[in-house]
Simulated assay, not measured.
Amino acid sequence: MLATIRHPAATAPEAPTLVIAHGLYGSGRNWGVIARRLADRREVVAVDMRNHGESPRFPTQSYPEMAADLAEVIESLGPQPVDLLGHSMGGKAAMQLALTRPELIRRLVVADIAPVAYAHDQTRNARAMAEIDLSRITTRAEADAALSARIDDPALRAFFLQSLDLRQRPPRWRLNLPVLEAEMPKIVGWPGTLGVFDHPALFLTGAESRYVLPEHRETIRALFPKARFAKIPGAGHWLHAEKPREFEETVRVFLEA
């Protein structure tokens, strides 16, 4: 089963458990601050998706498999339905689960992704991480310097380096990079899943992101007829990291409506 980080409710739970599924190259640890703040009235469980963090390594990374992983976690938590939040790759896995096992989910939050195939390719970033000679790395600063030769964006490097375990000698990536690179067509794609999730769903996007476009709304509404749409000003694809308080408040209002 997937590794999880559980954030118990600060008081007696008044709402269903919230499960959080991170995006590509991320982990449940990335969501620590938001998860703890949302745990004031409910338990929050952040997962490490397969081939990420401390979760098991598998040879494949398809959305039906990722949805089955999430279903196993949800069924282990006790009473269903739960609320489910997914960002990017995790958002697609969450949509896949909602369309195939709708009884498990009360409310769905999809952060900056649509149920469509994308043309962009993230294999360059997997290769950049894999090409670093970790036997020469002893500090995060050294790792950042090595990665800067391949990735210009310091914010993106900082995000990737959250998945570098410097306690190990030599350090190791908490990512199954060969599989993620090989399975990239599935990750940026969409399996064309049919079905209808007839419960409330929030599609929350960064106003400066180009991942969810106006032309995607017809496809979204066909699968999620109760979909609502909201944008966070000044945020891009990493909206939860760029505008965490605004992200948290928007999610809270939707889940508690």
Results as ranks from 00 to 15, higher is better:
L70S: 11
Y118T: 12
D112G: 01
A35H: 07
L70I: 13
D69Q: 03
P81K: 06
L70G: 11
V19Q: 02
A93Q: 01
I74N: 11
R107P: 01
R127H: 15
L134C: 06
D40F: 00
I137Q: 10
A21K: 07
M49I: 00
I113N: 09
M129G: 08
V110L: 06
R50Y: 04
A117H: 05
I20G: 04
I137C: 12
G23C: 12
D83H: 04
H120V: 13
R106S: 13
S135N: 13
A71E: 14
P59M: 08
T100R: 03
I132C: 14
A117P: 02
V116G: 14
R42K: 01
S135T: 15
D40G: 02
V44F: 06
H120Y: 15
A94I: 08
Y118A: 13
P79G: 05
V44Q: 02
S76L: 01
A126D: 07
E54Q: 10
Q122V: 02
V73M: 01
F58L: 13
H120M: 13
P115I: 14
R136K: 07
M129I: 02
N30M: 14
G32M: 07
M129V: 03
E72L: 11
A111V: 10
E103Q: 15
A94Y: 04
A67N: 09
D112N: 06
